[in-house]
Design a protein around this nucleic acid. Sequence first.
RNA 1: GGCCCGUUGGUCAAGGGGUUAAGACGCAUCCCUUUCACGGAUGAAUCACGAGUUCGAUUCUCGUACGGGCUACCA
Length: 506
Amino acid sequence: MNNRRVRVRFAPSPTGGLHLGGVRTVLYNYLFAKQHGGDFVLRIEDTDQTRYVAGAEQYIYDCLQWLGLEPDESPLKPGSFGPYRQSERKAIYRQYAEQLITNGQAYIAFDTPDELEKMRSEYKTEQNPSPQYDRTIRGRMRNSLTLAPDEVQELLEKNTPHVIRIKMPDDERIGFTDMIRGEVEFDSSLVDDKVLIKADGMPTYHLAVVVDDYLMQISHVFRGEEWLPSSPVHVLLWQYLFRVEKMPQWAHLPLILGPSGKLSKRDGAKYGFPVYAMNWTDPSGGELTEGFREKGFLPEAFINMLALLGWNDGSSQELFTKTELVEKFSVDRVHSAGAKFDYEKAKWFNHEWIKKLPVSSYAAHVKSFFDQKGISISNNDHFEKVLELVKDRATLLPDFVEQSSFFFEAPVVLDLEAVRPKWNEAKRTFFVDVIEKLSAAEWETASLEADFKEWATAAGLKPGEVMMPFRIMLVGGKFGPHVFDIAVMLGQAETVKRMKYFLSKI
RNA sequence: GGCCCGUUGGUCAAGGGGUUAAGACGCAUCCCUUUCACGGAUGAAUCACGAGUUCGAUUCUCGUACGGGCUACCA
C-alpha cells in the first residue's frame, strides 16, 4: 500500500521539552513512513492559547533537525492539508461538534468547575475514588439532556460558558485492532463523557485527533500507551463522524520507564541523566533541563539507542544507522511491554558511535566543548588527527577535552607524585641525554619508540621504568594514548620543551 | 476502587511444547598494554507463582501476585 501518511502530534507548552518517549514516538512514525515511501506529518497541538509557546514549537523543530527526523509536512513546511496548527483550525472542529449534537451523539454541558468538583466529592466513595461524568450521573448535571430546550437556548444566548461532551452509549463493546497488541476491547458504559470542545472554544485532543486524521488522510499512527484508555472515544467518533473503516491503524507504544514508573523529568535530575533531546529552559521558571545533545551524545547514537528500546530485528545486531533502521524496522517486532531506560547502555551506544563514525562528522560538535573550556582550536586538520588518536577513550563528547586538551595547552600542573618515589639521578641524566639525542631522531612513532628503548637499555635502565616519567612530562598525568604517538603529534620542539619543564620541576 | 496493558538474569532482550534458555549493557577475574582505554578470554546471574492441558511446559489455557497506564474543560 502506498500513500501512507503517518503523523505525530506535539503540544509545545512552557513545561514542554522533548523527552525520550516523545523522540521515540517520532522515530517510529518516521521509520514507518519512510519505509513505505509515505509522508511523515507533524501536527502542533496548541489547544490552549495561554499555554502555547512559540519557542517551544521551535524547540521541537530544532530537536528533530538535530536528529535528522524532519517531517515532510509541518506548520513550518505546510503540505496541502493545512493549517497544521490546531488553533488555526478552530472553526473546523466546531462544525463537527455541532453535527454530533444534532445527531444526539453529543450534548452541551453548563456545569461550572465548582459544580464539577462538588459532584466529584459528593459521589466519591471508597469503592469509587474518582467519579466520572458518565451515563450514571449525566442525568443529574446541568446539561442539554436535563434542561428544557428553551432553557438551554436562553443560557446559550446569554453566552453562558459551556462545553460539548460526547454521549457515550450504554453497554456497547468498542474495540479495534492495534498493530502491536492485536484486538483491544472496551465497555462503553465504563468510559466517561469526554469533553470535546472546551469552554474557550478549543477542541480537546479527542475531537481534534479524529477530525484532523480524517481531513489529513492519515493512515497510520504510533502513539504512547497512555492513550489506550481513551481510544474507545476516538473509535466512536470515527463511527459517528466518518467511516470507521477509514480510521488510521493505531500502534500504541510501550512506555519508557524510569527507575520507578513512567520516565519523568524529575528522574533525570534525581539520577543524573538527561531526559530531553536538547537543553530546555522553562520560560516561566527559567529552570534548565539538560539535553542529550549538550551532554555530549551523537544523534546517531541517540537514535540507535532509542530505536532499540522496545524493538529489535531478531538478530544480535545492535548498531544500526538510520538508513538500516528504515530498512529493517517492523511493527510486529515492537515489544508490548514497557522498557526501563538504562543510561549505562545509552553511553555504550555513544561510545560505539564515536568509534564508528569518522571524526570529521562530529569534530565541530566536539569543538564546542573545547570552546566551553576556553581552549580555542585553530587548525582543524590537526584537531581531527588528535581526535582520531583518542576516540577509543571517549564515551561522551566532552571526554575528548579531558583526553586531549594537553595537545593544545602544555600541562602546567604535573602529577609529580606518580614518579617521585622512583626518581633518581640516573633517570635525570638519562632524560637530559635524551633531549640531546632527540634533535637527530626520526620523528615517527615506531622508530622513536625503538630508539627510546634502546637508549634506556644502553643507560642501564629498563624501558618500562622511564615510560611513566616520559608520559608525565608530555601529558601531565597518568592517562592518554600511546606516549610515542603523543610525542610525534606534539612535534620535536614541544616535546623537548615539556621535558625541560618537567626537569625543572622535579 | 474501576477499566486497560504488561511480566525471560540488575537492565535491554532472542527463543516459543523436548534447547547446555542466544546476544548486548553493567559487574568480576584474567590476557594484551609498565598510563587510561580499545581488543581478546572466562565467570556469576533468568523463564513471577499456582493450577490445568500434555508423555513432556519457560513456551498453550485459566487463576493469583506483582508492575505500569488511564480514571481533567492536559496532552
